[in-house]
């Protein structure tokens, strides 16, 4: 059970106009929701504020009814939230294996030791074969696709309840994007993971999502089943530009 509820969330930087203004959104347990919108719509700000990295002026973020608003980023991770930020956030000075181990570091006791951790990491190598071949390579030697795989694997290895992804397809070849989104869909189906996926790649995102939410200037302007959204040319024209 991991329902993410966003209540009247207002987020803004400095004295400027708010980027998100009273945003309401619910991501039910096990759902895969695509968060769509043009540049500047507030997708990244929304994801960062869910993790406590953007200045929230008002409103609440609830996970299964528990208010997370006052918690630090580190404590939100411990409650089951995980964010893969934009731009392949691999720690380039560490190896692939070390990056993956880092994903389980916050776990206490046996889950962060020996066999349990090795099993979790091993599972990621099965999901992402290229990472297994390069497990001892430093992060800075990886290609863009490999880095994004590693960022996603590192988030999954911590077994989060809710996974937030910020434009995982940015700058990647269609084949790699298809592979990444495929793994994401399979993982969500197999483990009941709740996913909020921010994307510019509308077709790709809607192909794996159950529901699509369109954001424009900090507000939700459409919230519909993915298939319906993909088939609505007027909406696509108005907000998504194709």
């Amino acid at each position: 059970m991991s329902t993410l509820t966003i209540e009247k969330l207002t987020v803004g930087y400095g004295d400027g106009a708010p980027v998100l203004d009273g945003l309401e959104l619910e991501v039910p347990d096990g759902a895969v929701v695509a968060l769509l919108g043009a540049n500047g719509a507030g997708k990244t700000t929304l994801l960062r504020s869910l993790m406590g990295l953007a200045p929230v002026r008002d409103g609440r973020v609830l996970l299964d009814g528990t208010d997370l608003t006052a918690l630090s980023t580190e404590d939100r991770v411990r409650r089951g939230l995980a964010l893969v930020p934009e731009g392949r956030s691999v720690v380039v000075e560490l190896t692939v294996a070390e990056n993956l181990r880092l994903g389980t570091c916050w776990k206490k006791g046996r889950k962060n030791k020996g066999p349990a951790r090795e099993a979790a990491v091993g599972q990621m190598y099965e999901l992402f074969e290229p990472l297994a071949r390069r497990r001892d390579a430093a992060g800075h030697t990886l290609s863009g696709g490999e880095r994004q795989m590693l960022a996603l694997a590192r988030a999954l290895v911590g077994e989060p309840d809710v996974l937030l992804l910020d434009e995982p397809s940015l700058g990647l070849a269609p084949l790699v994007v298809a592979q990444l989104l495929g793994v994401l869909r399979d993982q969500a189906a197999a483990t009941g993971l709740t996913v909020l996926l921010a994307e510019q790649n509308v077709t790709g995102a809607l192909s794996v999502a159950d529901r699509g939410v369109v954001l424009s200037l900090g507000e939700v302007v459409a919230d519909r089943p993915a298939a319906e959204l993909a088939a609505d040319p007027a909406l696509r024209h108005a907000y998504l530009g194709f």
Partner: peptide, 15 residues
């Protein structure tokens, strides 16, 4: 090491 190289990424991983 991770906290020294990439503080924000490390926070996102619970460090």
């Amino acid at each position: 090491r991770a906290a020294a190289f990439a503080p924000e990424t490390s926070r996102l991983l619970g460090v």
